[in-house]
């Protein structure tokens, strides 16, 4: 039967959780500690408690791709990670598209293949973990969208018409079923941006991939990633976009860290600050900018902060 592709925020998250299990992202906490921090700050304001576990490992997406298609490793790692949330009876909220996509897919594989499930159970049982598939998996952006009205109530520093381009990244929308928007033309982040006072700008290459992929950002910088991103930035530049909001630390890394090199190679001044959606919301909620770790960004955010009257 045809499954429902696009869900309303109420269908996706029927009850607003009191406590969430925040699934940490390697890239997020490593490259942009502010992303993780901003979630904690936003949740504090919105009255949602955040639980994290230092025992949690990499989401295993890297593992899946790098181990040259041996799903067994990744399945076991995913089961172990999810069991950490399940033992607390919490739902998992990932803030990285990669983590979200991979744990969804891997848990789906496990729960629909009894042979895999049995094998993985055998492995993690002996280490003292148990995974039954009860915990549900969400992306943080879904919670923001669900709590949009509550966020708006708490906005103290609206974006003042800031021209914001959105970068959705690929792996949330690639889930295709049971997500918040149509993968071919999503608009829900633009709605959030509009709600907090920004002017969402639809630029031509809005949905072009960040080029980061699994390691392609390391290994194919010059020949693949730069050429690809140059196109994207030029189309954003053409619309006079003042900053790009991402929903995935991986995309954030590609768009931000590669920008100086692309500017150098192309001789064009791009200088578009890249901000995680969590950091953006936190800014409007008047969270202390020191807590948002913007010093980690390669492209300075001063233009945005000045416009908002911070500093």
């Amino acid at each position: 039967m045809i499954r429902k592709r696009v869900l309303s925020p109420e269908e996706r998250i029927p009850d607003i959780p009191e406590t969430i299990f925040l699934f940490r992202s390697c890239t997020g906490s490593m490259e942009y500690p502010g992303t993780e921090n901003s979630i904690k700050e936003i949740c504090k304001i919105l009255g949602v408690q955040v639980v994290m576990d230092p025992d949690q490992t990499c989401c295993s997406g890297y593992l899946l791709t790098c181990s040259a298609y041996k799903p067994e490793f990744s399945l076991a790692v995913t089961a172990r990670n999810l069991s950490l949330a399940e033992s607390r009876k919490l739902d998992v909220y990932a803030f990285c598209n990669g983590c979200y996509g991979y744990i969804c897919e891997l848990s789906h594989i496990m729960l629909h293949n009894p042979d895999y499930k049995k094998m993985i159970d055998g492995v993690i049982d002996q280490l003292g973990y148990k995974y039954e598939g009860k915990t549900r998996i969400f992306h943080m952006q879904e919670l923001y969208y669900r709590l949009k009205d509550k966020i708006v109530e708490n906005v103290k520093r609206p974006l003042d018409g800031l021209r914001v381009g959105v970068h959705y990244g690929c792996h949330y929308l690639a889930r295709q079923y049971g997500i918040l928007d149509e993968g071919g033309y999503p608009t829900f982040i633009e709605e959030i941006i509009e709600a907090i006072g920004g002017t969402p700008i639809f630029y031509k290459e809005r949905q072009a991939c960040c080029g980061g992929a699994v390691g392609r950002g390391f290994t194919h910088k010059e020949n693949v990633v730069h050429a690809h991103l140059y196109k994207k930035f030029m189309s954003a530049k053409k619309e006079n976009i003042e900053c790009i909001v991402t929903v995935c630390p991986g995309c954030n890394t590609s768009l931000d860290r590669e920008q100086p090199a692309i500017m150098e190679r192309s001789g064009e001044a791009i200088n578009i600050p890249i901000i995680d959606i969590g950091q953006m919301i936190a800014l409007t909620l008047d969270v202390d900018v020191q807590k948002l770790g913007f010093e980690a960004n390669s492209v300075s955010l001063d233009s945005v902060l000045n416009k908002l009257g911070i500093h």
Binding site: C26, S29, M30, E31, P33, D53, P54, D55, Q56, T57, E72, F73, A76, V77, R80, V123, I124, Q126, L127, G128, Y129, E295, A296, N297, S298
Partner: peptide
Amino acid sequence: KLKFFSPRTHNIKTIQPLFRRL
């Protein structure tokens, strides 16, 4: 802007045997 070490998984002793077993 880059930390030298990312926060290492706390209970690494449960990860290594997992790989070994598999």
